[in-house]
Amino acid sequence: MSNCKVLMYNHEKCSGCRSCVVGCSLYHDGECGKVVSRIAVVRNERFGESFPVGCDACTDAPCVAVCPTGACAMDCGAGIAKIDTEKCIGCKECAMACPFGAINMHYKTGKAFKCDLCEGREEGPVCADWCPGGAITYETPDVSFKLKRREKLTERLKAAKVGEEG
């Protein structure tokens, strides 16, 4: 499970375009809108800041722990908690428990819904696939952190070089 691919969100690269939001809602619900998206983008317009917020695929997932019916359960193969709509009673406990706000209640069914990594989509989750700036990636944690390590190192070296020249 620890080697499953996960979605990683890097707000430093997020332009706030919400391509992820329209893709997610279209793929899952066949309609477009923020209210049916499993991923959200929090924007601070005044400062030009944007933060993608989606399921962080917790290993000890609070949403699973609090679910009274077993509807929200860990899919060990995929490495992420998924919600069985049939079993969900719409109590909102999981949405309240999620530390990130990655669970919402569906306006049509009244049931909880969350990221399922676009189960069945060949190209992987649509949010990562459509992200124009590489702010959302879909990799195993190991690969993601390797990339991050190298990126951060490159930035630091570059800054140091500019400092020397300057």
């Binding site: 332009s15 375009c17 919400r18 124009p132």
Partner: peptide
């Protein structure tokens, strides 16, 4: 400081 994208934009 940052790149900015309008709604649903693939360019930004």
């Amino acid at each position: 400081k940052h790149r900015e994208g309008c709604y649903a934009c693939p360019i930004c």
